[in-house]
Write a protein that binds this DNA or RNA. Structure first.
Lengths: 365, 365
DNA sequence: CTGAAAGCGCTTACAG
DNA sequence: CTGAAAGCGCTTACAG
């Protein structure tokens, strides 16, 4: 409210400043300059590391830095951003921050961004295109410097506009159909191919795939890997797609129905971590023993899969690498050519790792 | 770079604007006003819902809104924030976003904040006071409107300064010693007391507690609940504190050593979710059967505990309520009295829920 | 090195 | 309703 009052009494800026100071309010660059008896420009240039360039003596520069440190002056980032056009904020969009895969990657990205002086604003899309459109607009209005995005299908136009606007962005986890941008994705087809081959190699001949909404490109890649492995052996596919949004109860029911309807099914692959979690719960309810009565593989690793009894075989994603590459590519683009030049396009495909555990091994009976 | 060029050629603002427009750059309020042939003030007032107040005709207001919607004009939030002092951003500080408890609460807070027009900037402290000090300073420099904080010990002074600055804040998960602020915490003492009573009621007489760094206040509350339950029965405590930071391997080793050193121990309570996860892994390595050879209870619920075999008894936190109350209290303070008045202080203590599952039941042998 | 000034894009009294 | 203007707190040529 003080702020508002000072705005309504433009006649007495000096007074206001004195009051603000008395209330231990924010120091301004003006206060620093005044106290050191130097110009505002000098303080600003020193603070922005342009002392050498502007031939400010080392002594003065150091004096400024020391005083700034001493009184804990922090430039107002809003003003700075408004002036420079840079916010040092990165917009991170994930499907769901409560999903262990995304929260792990988000944590790593945050850590790496912070180490390079960038902050993260994040949002979950819940795979909802309309919500995502809003989010992207809000991020734009907040002038984030760049984007790291795992997007639902249906926002291609918005992303195209974003690219045209010149803001760097990196897609991760999934591409968008028909869109050529920086991206860090997993080679999910190969991961799934290997997982399927592994199960076939164990002697399971009826291998089911439980997958998510087909409109996500990373899901179709995983499906392809599965399909190819089966095709090579002349075996038929057995696919259940779980449509969202549904309640946990409905999802479990759908899974139970699926397993009940296919008693001959010997093995199942869950295409993503939460499907795996639901799947284990459904199999538990049905009383199916793993791997004797149903061999199991899931995409994504987590504590549950690692410590489950038996431990669950997984196609693990290199989350550290996903985070590191995403942020590196983005920051390279940010510090890169600039001048509206399109710059270098980087599309990375990382290799998943099949971690074979007890859940997928043929019982030696 | 275009921006920078326009800044260096202040003589030709009109030109720059035309160029910007041609490049499909951001629309400005000036462009809207010009096109509609109304004043900038009119557009601004309509957009800020002050049309009635300023007696702008409904027809004109609607015309403005329609055009703004049509061309997708979004005010520059940086400029708006600089002027109004409000950013509509909330700083969320958690111990570790990759911890399921925090990621779940963060997801809920994000969702609820968004529904009320606020965005979240978040950071993980990793329970590091120095890092946290930096984070708080950065959040201040970014002028967040308010804070939701789960803090490590050792930043009391900074928080006190924050409170004095008049920015609303809500602590959650844990209080800070000697600090009276808005807070949403769990009644961990009662939760732990009930869990311990439950184990004693099952006939286990040697009940151990594995807890985390004692400097966190919520941990001491949990310890107290445990201690009281034992004291009432005249039983001794058996406590292992796991000090951080350590590698997973070291933590597991420490747990294994502890269990090996106390063969008489019949039951164990893990004071927080990640300790529970490590604990299950350690017990698994030692080949201890649950609950026959070791009854287990953990704080916090998650998929692993729910689906483990046997399912793990937990003291579950009401995460939905934690998120809802935290954001509600903060927003109430934000829209509250203002004028630097301290306003109402809210300290909430929520009740945990003991979910009894197989891991803590005396085997009926 | 300094000082004065413009400008980032808004909001908001103020006088009409 | 409008128009002109100040002001939020910075950065950065520019002329000295």
């Amino acid at each position: 409210m003080n702020k508002r009052q000072s705005a309504s009494r433009p006649k007495r800026p000096a007074d206001c400043r004195r009051i603000a100071y008395a209330l231990k309010k924010k120091l301004l660059i003006h206060d620093i300059a005044k106290h050191l008896d130097v110009s505002i420009a000098t303080v600003s240039l020193v603070l922005n590391g342009k002392a050498k360039e502007k031939r400010i003596s080392d002594g003065l520069a150091e004096k400024v830095l020391r005083y700034v440190e001493e009184v804990g002056y922090k430039p107002n980032q809003l003003a700075k951003s408004l002036r420079t056009g840079k916010t040092h904020v990165i917009g991170l969009v994930v499907e769901d921050i409560a999903n262990p895969f995304f929260s792990a990657v988000a944590g790593l990205i945050e850590q790496k961004a912070l180490a390079r002086g960038y902050h993260i604003i994040y949002c979950s899309t819940n795979d909802d295109a309309a919500k995502t459109r809003d989010l992207l607009a809000v991020f734009q209005a907040r002038h984030v410097d760049g984007y790291i995005l795992a997007l639902p299908a249906g926002v291609e136009e918005e992303v195209r506009a974003l690219v045209r606007s010149g803001k760097p962005l990196v897609l991760f986890d999934r591409l968008l159909p028909g869109l050529l941008t920086n991206a860090v994705v997993l080679d999910g087809a190969t991961g799934m191919y290997e997982a399927t081959r592994h199960l076939l190699g164990q002697g399971f001949t009826t291998v089911a795939l439980v997958t998510a909404r087909a409109s996500q490109l990373q899901m179709t890649a995983r499906h392809q890997g599965y399909a190819q492995a089966l095709r090579e052996q002349g075996l038929p596919e057995l696919v259940q797609e779980i449509a969202f949004p549904q309640t946990p109860g409905q999802i479990l029911q759908q899974m139970e129905d699926f397993f009940a309807a296919h008693p001959a099914c010997q093995a199942v692959i869950f295409a993503t971590n939460y499907l795996g979690v639901y799947g284990l719960e459904a199999l538990g309810r049905l009383g199916r023993r793993i791997p004797d009565e149903m061999a199991v593989v899931s995409f994504d690793d987590n504590d549950l899969f690692r410590l489950y009894s038996p431990p669950i075989t997984v196609v693990a994603q290199p989350m550290e690498a996903i985070a590191e590459e995403s942020i590196s590519i983005l920051l390279a683009a940010l510090q890169g050519p600039g001048d509206g030049a399109p710059g270098r396009l980087v599309q990375l495909q990382l290799a998943p790792q099949l971690l074979v555990r007890g859940s997928s091994l043929r019982p030696t009976s």
